[in-house]
Design a protein around this nucleic acid. Sequence first.
DNA 1: AGTCGCCTGGTA
DNA 2: TACCAGGCGACT
Length: 272
Amino acid sequence: MPELPEVETIRRDLIKLVVGKKVLDIKTDSPKQVKPSLAIVKKAIVGASIKKIERRAKLLQIFFSNNRVLIIHLKLTGRLLVREAGAVEDKWQHVVLFLSGNKELRFTDLRKFGWVKLLKDQNELEEILSGFGPEPLNDLDFNKFKEILASTARAIKVLLMDQKKISGIGNIYACDALLLAKIHPEKKAKELKEVEAKRLFTAVEKVLKAGIKYRGASDQYYLDALGHKGSYQDHFLAYGRAGEKCFKCDGIIDKMKLGGRGTYFCPKCQKK
DNA sequence: AGTCGCCTGGTA
DNA sequence: TACCAGGCGACT
């Protein structure tokens, strides 16, 4: 599932591949995923060129030369692929932007949970972005992190994945950061001791940076903008490793459900 | 805070 | 053939 490192990798790819290109046309076979509607998006961006591409949390923002903004959420199985015009159709291809320079920007999505949304104006963008917590690799310092922890008695893993509190962390990096910091996923956030908070703060930064370094985790569906896999899955600490040996002790990684989500942890390293 | 619904491919 | 995963918003 695309989380901060995966979306960031795609953003960096797209900057090289599509910035400066003009939108010639757009099509979809899955109208529900294009908001507010294909007709409105078409009218707004056909003829404009891509000016810059930003990321906030797991959201990609495409800014156009006419000041319109498209935001994209990949959810679980979304991909953004840049292909040559007319190249063989990609699996689960649902929205296509036809670009100048004989390129196509394709949004593919097996589950169809992802979406592409045209914003009304700058205000709407600010409104949406203001709903996200700080970026863990940019505007989060340790004091702010401690405040966030102290604000709730929810399980620490659920908190890490709450985009309103901290942005960009999903199941993979939450599981890995908690093992690296040796903290049980169910531990209440406000009950973390200073040293644990410190370890977790460092661990979050470390796993996210590793994710970016390895160009994301292609455990299941994730591919970068050129359709290549990342390799962070070869460096998973906890995620997806149920039954395998812990990387730091002789314990065996276990799997449980927490907040409805599969949660991987080492019962020996991560005590409650 | 817990549950449902959105989807579809993979698995039991 | 039924069931399940899973980000996130809506609902309870």
